[in-house]
Nucleic acid binder design. Sequence first.
DNA 1: TAATAAAATTAGTTTTGTCTAATTTTATTA
DNA 2: TAATAAAATTAGACAAAACTAATTTTATTA
Lengths: 218, 218
Amino acid sequence: MNTFSEENYLKAIFRLSQMPAVSKISTSAIAESLGNNPASVVDMIRKLTDKQLIEYDKKKGVKLTAQGEKDAIQIIRKHRLWEVFLLEKLEYRWDEIHDIAEELEHIKHTDLADRLDKFLGFPEYDPHGDPIPKANGKMAKSFSASLADGKTGSTYRVAAVRDTSSAFLQYLHKLKISIGTQIRLIEQIAFDQSLVISIDNGEPTTVSSKFVENILIS
Amino acid sequence: MNTFSEENYLKAIFRLSQMPAVSKISTSAIAESLGNNPASVVDMIRKLTDKQLIEYDKKKGVKLTAQGEKDAIQIIRKHRLWEVFLLEKLEYRWDEIHDIAEELEHIKHTDLADRLDKFLGFPEYDPHGDPIPKANGKMAKSFSASLADGKTGSTYRVAAVRDTSSAFLQYLHKLKISIGTQIRLIEQIAFDQSLVISIDNGEPTTVSSKFVENILIS
DNA sequence: TAATAAAATTAGTTTTGTCTAATTTTATTA
DNA sequence: TAATAAAATTAGACAAAACTAATTTTATTA
């Protein structure tokens, strides 16, 4: 069994490996992703290598082994299932659930994820639009197309969010945007790339390019 | 905030303080209760004293301060609420829930216990018959009368169990005894104090004195 | 290519929570 | 009361997971 800390590293490495822009998972990338010191990451790379959960090559960076990926996916499965539980059953807000799920995801017990899955009705996606891995580790592909790449004049459906920070989610809440919301791109301002959008056919609103980059569409 | 380990000590101390037979909570009693070395307990007594969660007097042993008791009760509240969740919602067996709740009880987040409480319909007792502390820390008295003190010929209602180990709970399951079951004391065997009982008016069964001591009646 | 910057690593430290072994204190009993 | 047993404590060690500071390696750029 892996410790909480090992699990957090596996999760971070998995997350980085899923990012198309990241070609090599470096010590410093992991450090930044976890908010840890690179020296600490070096220690953990050694430990996870010994446990055969990752492979490390100075040139190629870090790669999860089959077992490491399996373990990472199971943690992500639990994280996303707990998020559904917290939102749907305990009525937490969208922006509150991530941090609590960060703790709950580490609870280990045979069957816990499977029973929770069943209790929740086998949800396909978590409240942020991320796919929930199945018991066998199979997982639908994440949405990757960003609203930032949409065409002016077209309308898109919000499928997921890239950033799950409460600052971003609270802003979305304020704009009345959630999974399923329709957004039309009206105009791009040349000066600073900000965008004028219409939310569910409402009045035009201006948002930043950073904002639209974090909205994923289906 | 307290660490997992500190919380476990507070809980153990609270549990010991609730036991009528225990007049003084000693280093060794805590060690035995947690399965730790007495030397470790000495260290933790120092730390909890510094944090003003307990008071320690060589003569009188360990006592929780008002704050320490408050903290302990909140952990117990979470433990018992999660037990209800695991049994009722995730359909775990009676003997499986304790260990999982031992992990879940340490999850900290404003409101978590209160939201869980509401979701579960404000249960009064956990699946082992122990009272669930309210949000304000108020808690019904535990059942303390043991079936071992019952009179031969009388019938009693199982209100709670003293031992929550899976060995005991599995045995109860096998005997079809749960909270609410009626037990009649038929006869005590002088030789080894074992007892002949009738479960829900069924055929006579013989059980040990240790067994009946761990059944609490209302 | 040499100089510089960035990334990775090593060495040594800290905190938390545990342990063992030795010692001291307290309690029990002959 | 003195001897013995039990309980408590101290001293020192260890593992996990983090850190800082210094150094080495690798990459970038003038």
